[in-house]
């Protein structure tokens, strides 16, 4: 039987791992490679790696972290795939089929796209045809505006006229393999997922939905899996602040009788 997945999201900004709050404020959390190694050892089911840099620089500006400075996202993906024997989704700044190919060649398994799908909806189909539907994750940032979950663009800043459900249907028909559904309102707020958003979108489409945004305690993962049809639960900040976080979260979900892969600690 297929398991529900627990997925840490790593946000990368100019070469650093960061914490985000409502897509506006960012706090530095350190070296992305050591974070990935830790999350692998704690038995994550997958990793989602989003590059939210605003320019092309990814210099970690330190050489005292046991890793050489990384100059770009490609070197970071390459390093990560050496320590993480698990599926890895990479997103951020994807502008062409070539951008996808380059990331896959370095060890990424799936590519998350957002802005380009909104600008050129036919890109989803082109990418799915070229690399397979299993490889294309469409990331949707939604915000509740006047009672409707609207799709946001430009890193969650600008509302579009699309509803999250309509957009999810459209991209799933175009060949997207999964939806990464993030709530701009809940991002970094620790008050739980936007369950209405998850419920509506996961009921509207057949492809898997990955829930994201707002987790402040393990119980929030359980709520989404029990009360909505999402296939996977993701979070960023919560995984970075406690030792063995993924392991503890898994253990909790198993105790709640949920269908997740058993918790395990690896020795890498």
């Amino acid at each position: 039987m297929k398991k529900n997945r627990l997925i840490p999201v790593l946000l990368l900004r100019n070469g650093w791992l960061v914490q985000s709050k409502q897509f506006r404020r960012y706090q530095n959390l350190g070296n992305p490679i050591s974070a990935v190694k830790r999350l692998s050892e704690w038995g994550s089911d997958e990793l989602i790696y989003l590059d939210i840099s605003r320019d092309e620089t990814h210099d970690m500006r330190r050489d005292d972290l046991g890793h050489p400075n990384r100059s770009n996202i490609f070197e970071i993906i390459e390093d990560v795939s050496k320590v993480a024997f698990m599926p890895m989704t990479v997103g951020g700044r994807i502008r062409s089929l070539g951008d996808i190919e380059a990331r896959l060649a370095l060890g990424a398994d799936k590519i998350a796209i957002n802005t380009i799908a909104l600008e050129q909806p036919q890109f989803v189909e082109q990418a799915a045809r070229e690399f397979g539907a299993q490889c294309i994750v469409v990331s949707i940032d939604a915000k509740l505006i006047d009672g409707m979950h609207r799709v946001m663009r430009d890193g969650g800043r600008e509302p579009t006229s699309l509803s999250a459900c309509d957009w999810a249907r459209q991209v799933s028909q175009a060949g997207a393999g999964e939806i990464l559904l993030n709530s701009v309102d809940r991002d970094g707020m620790k008050n739980g997922y936007d369950l209405d958003l998850l419920r509506q979108v996961s009921a509207a489409i057949k492809i898997p939905v990955i829930a994201c945004g707002g987790v402040g305690e393990w119980g929030h993962f359980a709520e989404a899996l029990q009360q909505t049809r999402v296939d996977a639960v993701a979070a960023a900040n919560i995984f970075h602040y406690s030792d063995q976080s993924v392991y503890m979260a898994k253990k909790y979900l198993l105790e709640q009788g949920l269908n997740v892969r058993p918790a395990e600690l690896l020795e890498l």
Binding site: K2, K3, P208, R261
Partner: peptide, 28 residues
């Protein structure tokens, strides 16, 4: 269920083989 089949799934060993030695009963 939708295709492709993507994700973690448990595997049932049907026949003793060194490939699966010392893996638990139903590994994912």
């Amino acid at each position: 269920y939708p295709l492709p089949h993507i994700g973690w799934n448990n595997v049932t060993v049907q026949r003793a083989n060194p490939l699966f030695s010392e893996l638990e009963n139903s590994p994912d």
